[in-house]
Design a protein around this nucleic acid. Structure first.
Lengths: 218, 218
DNA sequence: GTCTATACCAGGATAGAC
DNA sequence: GTCTATCCTGGTATAGAC
C-alpha cells in the first residue's frame, strides 16, 4: 500500500529513480532500433515494448505518446551528432583535421548505425521534427567550421572548394556505410563486415577525402 | 450497357486502353511522390488517390494492393537506375568516364528526387522488396565496372582504390543532394536550389571525385 | 471501368485493478 | 509504478450500384 512497497525494485536495493532511468534507457535503445528498421509510422509501440522487454503501457507511462518517444530518440541522436562535429579541430594542419573528422564520422556509422538510419529517415521525409535544429544549430556550426576551411584555402593549404558542399560530401560518404549497409552487404556479397574490413574501408574513405581536398595522406 | 459506352473516355476519341495507361502512369507518379514523402507505411492509399486525382478504389482496380503498387513504383525506379549505370562508359580516359558518370548521377538526383528518396528509404529499412535485385543484378554490374577500373589502376591511369568502395562513395556523394535535400536547404538557408546553383554544386562534386581518384579535371 | 458505402483490422492510447 | 483489458481512430480492401 505504501509507495515504497508498491515498487518491485525497492526490495532489490535499487532506488525507484534508478529503476526508472534504467527503464527509460532500455526503451530509448529499443525504440532507436525499431524506428531505424521501420520508420516512424512503421514502428509500433507493441514492437518497441517487446524489444524493450516490457508491457506496452509502460512506454506510455514513461514517454506519454509515440511521437514524444520519437522526439526523445531524435534528441538523443542529435546530441551525439554535435559531439562528433567537435572532432573537426581547426588546430594543426588541414590533413590531420580532415582525416580525424572522417574517421570520427566513420566510427559513428559503425557504432550507432541505428541512430544514423533514424536520422537519415527523418531528413528524407522532410525533417518535420528536427527542421529547426538543422536551420539553426547545424547551419551556424557549418558556417563556423566553413570559415576555418576558407582560411586554409586562402592560405593555399588545400584545394579551393565550397566548404558547405565539402561538408555534405563528407557526411554522405561516411554515413552511407550505416544507412545503406544492406546495399553494401549485398554488393560485397557478405552478411556483415568484420572490424578489419571496416577499418580498411575507413582508410579508403579517408584517402579519397584527403585527395579530394587536394591533400596528400600523411 | 455496352463496353464502349461504359467507358467515359470513349466519347473523347481515346481508346479504353489508352485511358488505362494514362491512369496507371498518373497513379505511379503520385505514388512515387507520396511514398517518398511518407515512406511505405506512412503513405495512405487515400493520399495517393487524392494526389492522382481519382477515387481510392481505382487504385485497387489498377494495382490490386498497396504493396503491389509500391513494387510497381520500385520496379520503375530500378529500371532508370540501371539506365544511369550505363553512363559509366569504359572507353576513353578515366577522367571523362568518371566525370560523365558523376554528372549523370547528379542529374538523376535533380530530375527524380522522389525516386531517389523512395529507393533510399527502401534500402535503409532493409531492402525487403529489392534485396534480390541488389545482390544479383547490381552486384554483377558493379563487378563488371569494377574490372574496368582495376584495369585503369594497373595501367597507372588513376590512383589505387577499391572499385567497390569507390562506387559507394560516388553514389553517396551524388544521391545525398536528393535524399537530404531538406538538410541542404536548411544549411544553405534557401528554400530551393536554382539550376545555376545546382550546376555549380555538380561541378564541385565532379572535381572532388576526380581529385579523389587521383585525376585532374579536364 | 468507375465510384459510394462499408466491412474489417491494426495499432495508439487509456481506465482501472493491483 | 506496473500491467490487463478495452476503446476508438484511421486505413486497407471490397461489395455492389451505376
Amino acid at each position: 500500500m505504501t509507495i515504497i512497497s508498491a515498487d518491485p525494485a525497492a526490495g532489490g536495493g535499487r532506488s525507484r529513480r534508478a529503476t526508472g532511468l534504467r527503464n527509460e534507457a532500455a526503451i530509448l535503445a529499443a525504440a532507436e532500433r525499431v524506428f531505424a528498421e521501420r520508420g516512424f509510422k512503421g514502428a509500433s509501440m507493441s514492437e518497441i515494448a517487446a524489444a524493450a522487454r516490457m508491457p506496452k503501457p509502460n512506454l506510455h507511462y514513461y514517454f506519454g505518446t509515440k511521437e514524444a518517444l520519437y522526439r526523445a530518440v531524435l534528441t538523443d541522436i542529435l546530441e551525439t551528432w554535435l559531439g562528433e562535429a567537435n572532432a573537426f579541430v581547426p588546430d594543426g594542419d588541414p590533413a590531420t583535421a580532415l582525416a580525424g573528422y572522417v574517421r570520427a564520422k566513420m566510427r559513428w556509422s559503425r557504432e550507432r548505425p541505428h541512430a544514423s538510419r533514424v536520422f537519415a529517415n527523418e531528413v528524407i521525409h522532410g525533417a518535420l521534427f528536427i527542421g529547426q535544429y538543422l536551420s539553426d544549430d547545424l547551419r551556424r556550426r557549418v558556417e563556423e567550421k566553413g570559415r576555418v576551411i576558407e582560411g586554409w584555402i586562402r592560405g593555399g593549404r588545400m584545394a579551393a572548394a565550397d566548404p558547405k558542399v565539402l561538408f555534405f560530401i563528407l557526411w554522405a560518404m561516411t554515413q552511407t556505410w550505416a544507412d545503406f549497409a544492406v546495399q553494401v552487404h549485398a554488393v560485397l556479397g557478405v552478411s556483415d563486415l568484420s572490424d578489419e574490413e571496416y577499418d580498411r574501408i575507413t582508410e579508403e574513405v579517408v584517402v579519397f577525402a584527403l585527395r579530394g581536398c587536394g591533400l596528400t595522406p600523411a
